[in-house]
């Protein structure tokens, strides 16, 4: 009579442990983007004029709209956790649907923003870009790489949220076991935080 055995199918559920693991992964992501931010800062320090001229070309309006989109999507995924904790599956689903829709809207805006730059002949390795100064080549190189890597994280985030969404439909993620939803939320907020710094650095500070 020393052990009480439960006949659950999945007993390897460790809420705290799962969350800690997700945070450790997020730290590696923060340092990845952090390294890129330092690269940006150093090159801006070495080429202030070129970075000023190139940053003026970016569309503050599109950047601001995308910032608001990501902030709202972060709030809606946070709300979906509250809804699931309260066992309100319908609201959980609606909030996750809004989050995914906003993420896709972000990507569509990004497509048009990049498209406008590319149609002006500005893309990595283009003849037009290669005629510019070293500083401007560096600025656009970092712009495409950092916003591109961020967009890749948006795509991964949507896929992650979609997986969690399907698990909620199957009741595998529920009011008792919701750490997967929390972890997808943590990932999504990470993507939001990266954009919180990308937006002022590339679009606002000229």
């Amino acid at each position: 009579m020393e052990k009480v055995t439960t006949t659950h199918e999945h007993d390897h559920y460790d809420h705290e442990g799962s969350k800690l693991g997700m945070w450790l992964f997020i730290f590696t992501e923060l340092l990845l983007f952090g390294g890129l931010f330092i690269t940006y800062a150093v090159y801006k320090y070495l080429n202030p004029e070129a970075f000023h001229m190139a940053a003026e070309e970016l569309n503050v309006g599109v950047g601001a709209i995308n910032t608001v989109i990501l902030l709202i999507s972060s709030a809606t995924i946070a709300m979906s956790i509250t809804a699931l904790q309260q066992n309100n599956i319908r609201l959980t689903k609606v909030m996750l649907e809004i989050t995914m829709m906003l993420a896709i809207t972000f990507l569509i805006n990004k497509y048009f923003e990049w498209g406008a730059k590319i149609s002006h002949g500005i893309y990595p390795g283009s003849d037009h870009l290669m005629e510019m100064s070293r500083g401007e080549i560096l600025f656009y190189g970092l712009y495409f790489f950092m916003t591109g890597l961020h967009a890749l994280h948006i795509i991964v985030g949507v896929a992650f949220i979609a997986v969690v969404y399907s698990k909620i439909l199957k009741r595998k993620v529920n009011a008792e076991r919701y750490v997967l939803l929390e972890n997808s939320g943590l990932y999504w907020h990470l993507v939001d935080i990266v954009w919180i710094f990308l937006f002022p650095l590339f679009y606002l500070i000229t």
Binding site: A75, G185, I193
Partner: peptide, 12 residues
């Protein structure tokens, strides 16, 4: 931006 991140980290 740091203030915004702090809000996201603390609450969201």
């Amino acid at each position: 931006a740091s203030l915004k991140s702090w809000l996201v980290l603390s609450y969201f």
